[in-house]
């Protein structure tokens, strides 16, 4: 079935409205706020700091540790039990692997960089929002990075490829949906997160990845603007 007009009326290649801010938390070494549609992610970065327990430290390079947490009443569905669960652990792991190739950890042997992603409100695309927030927060913490890591979900609703699926679009009435979260490093084009829910063929997947690439370029720009806004003025000399 054809999905012609989107539930919220935006174009097929259009993301939901994005608000990105850097440096929103006082006590973290770096922090960020990322809102896309109704999904809100906060990321706090602590470190580089000494790794405890010591046996987890790597003497060759620093370690990146990401924790993803969805708050109990954040989603549109049932209250989810607080604390880590199978899903949160999986997303923590994939977020970590999505950010890792962009971060230069060689300078921090035996240290750890902790990233905490909190989602007070979610409406699909939470892992992508989390990764977007985390990469702003990492840059805000002064960590050397190849590039920002933007992330976006692309997919099919019925036969129509769309960018940035909302919660309703993930379960459309009378249609099949495919949800493909993608994270990438814009400067190299390296894809660092690729998961899939649903069935597509190779050609369709390529269509989706092209769309993701375009959307990610836009998001990366927003991330950089958020950082520039925070540090604006710091450049002026006396």
């Amino acid at each position: 079935m054809q999905y012609k007009k989107r539930y919220d009326g935006r174009g097929h290649d259009e993301t939901r409205p994005i608000i990105a801010k850097a440096g929103v938390l006082q006590n973290a070494d770096g922090s960020a706020y990322f809102k896309i549609g109704e999904t809100i992610a906060y990321a706090a970065v602590y470190g580089p700091r000494e790794m405890y327990p010591r046996r987890l430290a790597d003497p060759k390079r620093g370690v990146l540790r990401v924790n993803y947490n969805m708050m109990p009443f954040s989603g549109p569905g049932e209250r989810n039990r607080p604390g880590p669960n199978r899903r949160a652990k999986e997303i923590s792991m994939v977020s970590e692997k999505a950010l890792l190739p962009a971060v230069d950890l060689e300078k921090y042997p035996n240290c750890v960089i902790d990233v905490f992603i909190e989602l007070p409100q979610t409406d699909a695309g939470s892992r992508c929002a989390g990764i977007c927030a985390a990469s702003i927060a990492l840059a805000d913490a002064g960590i050397t990075m190849q590039d920002m890591v933007p992330a976006i979900a692309v997919g099919y609703v019925g036969d129509t490829p769309v960018v940035d699926l909302s919660y309703d679009e993930e379960q459309p009435e009378g249609m099949e949906a495919v949800d493909v979260p993608v994270a990438l490093i814009p400067s190299t084009g390296e894809i660092t997160l690729l998961q899939m829910d649903g069935i597509v063929d190779a050609e369709q997947l390529n269509t989706l990845l092209e769309k993701a690439k375009d959307a990610c370029a836009v998001i990366a720009q927003k991330q950089r603007e958020a950082l520039q806004e925070k540090y604006l003025g710091d450049a002026d000399e006396e």
Partner: peptide, 9 residues
């Protein structure tokens, strides 16, 4: 000169 730069720029 003295412009703020951010990763990936």
């Amino acid at each position: 000169e003295r412009e703020i730069v951010v990763p990936g720029q």
